[in-house]
Design a binder for these strands. Sequence first.
RNA 1: GGUCGGGUGGCCGAGCGGUUAGGCAGUGGUCUGCAAAACCAUCUACAGCGGUUCAAAUCCGCUCCCGACCUCCA
Length: 497
Amino acid sequence: MSSKLHFYNTISRKKEEFIPANPPFVGMYVCGPTVYGDAHLGHARSAITFDIVFRYLKHLGYKVRYVRNITDVGHLENDADYGEDKIAKKARLEQLEPMEVVQYYKDRYHREMDALNNNRPSIEPQASGHIIEQIAMTEKLLENGFAYVSEGSVYFDVEKYAASHHYGKLSGRKIEDLQSNSRDLDGQSEKRSPLDFALWKKASPEHIMRWPSPWSDGFPGWHIECSVMSSKYLGNSFDIHGGGLDLLFPHHECEIAQSVGANGEEPVRYWLHNNMITLNGQKMAKSLGNTIMLHEFFSGDNELLDQSYDPLTIRFFILQAHYRSTLDFGNEPLQAAQKGYSKLKTALASARSLSIEWKPESDEVTALINKWSDECAAAMNDDMNTALTIATLFDMASYINGLKNVQEKRIPSKAQFEEIINIFAAYFEDVLGLGSESTGSQNVEVLDDVMDVLLELRTTAKENKDYGTADAIRDKLKAIGVTIMDGKDGADWQVDA
RNA sequence: GGUCGGGUGGCCGAGCGGUUAGGCAGUGGUCUGCAAAACCAUCUACAGCGGUUCAAAUCCGCUCCCGACCUCCA
């Protein structure tokens, strides 16, 4: 196998071979959620995308430290909400402590990400726990002459920085264009240039989330937490920075400017951005009011949804598209995903319990195994083309299912079949995270025994041509979500997704 | 307006110079007491118009649509 891992690096706009700075260690930072509301499908796509990076790098043998922040200090809002901290606003609305709101949504976020089978990051730092470091970095930027104090707030001086560095290198923006396009926002009089962004913001009197600083009682700016927490846990220069495409500008551009301005080092070697999920061709966003919350998918409780969807169906749906493409949501595609996913899951389960007459090892089967193994690796290595990996898994599933047919000639040896299962499981479960966790082993065993009893009764009924009873057993089980499948040698069953 | 990215068969989606992508749906079979599942076979494509090339969904140009960012956002 000759293919090597390549990522599309946003900053160079090309696929590049991934070579960590300090192998076998890899540092990855991903922009996490603002915990003042529930997660929607877009949050799921980002989390799943970088969970795949995390899992695949580990699969390749790297030691990965995955840092994903929790934003809990709030940021400025425009319009009527100008100057008000998002979390504080919500808190007043609900008469809760701000940190109580944070805790509530953080817990829900974790539960939903767990349900999607995302591995937890290695470190999940909160912005509120790094105020001291954010103040320190702001001081460093003031010292280095890239920031200025104005009315108790501190701003990054973009023009000053741009005189000696390339501001816009990530997003491909030109500073002249930005200047001519900038809009008039309130509070810009404090800034020397509309392009400047806040490092520290003085809190208005009604703003309850606030911390003391050398400049004012206030709160950190929007971008500084990521620069601070990534360098704290991964170093001034680290391998991978991930996030949604919508964060490219200004957020990630500002992160580069801040880090370079403070530390004099280019912070990130590979920039990875996942694309958006669209609904009727438009992206899902809070501001557009067309978001569907994750818990609504799980419960089906949204008028846009025909039914509820299993979290792993959502995961599969997302992985069937490449992470850099937009993915259009719909009930029909989601239902297609549900069936396809179920097919793969069932194929793996039946492979694990398959017993047929094995043949001696054959070159033909060995060639197949090598082909599948290479295809899976090549697909993942090519900028994580999970859609292609899944296509290979479908090939393997067809082969596995076909082994029961008498006309199948390519019967493997026992060892070869075990290798096939290992490859399938390595990608399906470990890399793509699509294996469903078996819950409560003891209950499962009891259920197995109970089902054996029922199937035995039904078989007896069938032998007596008592199809009424046989069908009644099948129908009633179907009604509670268990499907009976009659086969050549006995019946099989599965719990519906 | 500026800067990017798209338009693939009934639906979703890979591919980005020569090979069946794949899934779901449809059709015809096999199997089955019936069903389900599974397997086999099969049908719909590359927005339009030009150009480059032995060869273009894939490269170039134009046209028409659509989206993203520039503002909190995955």
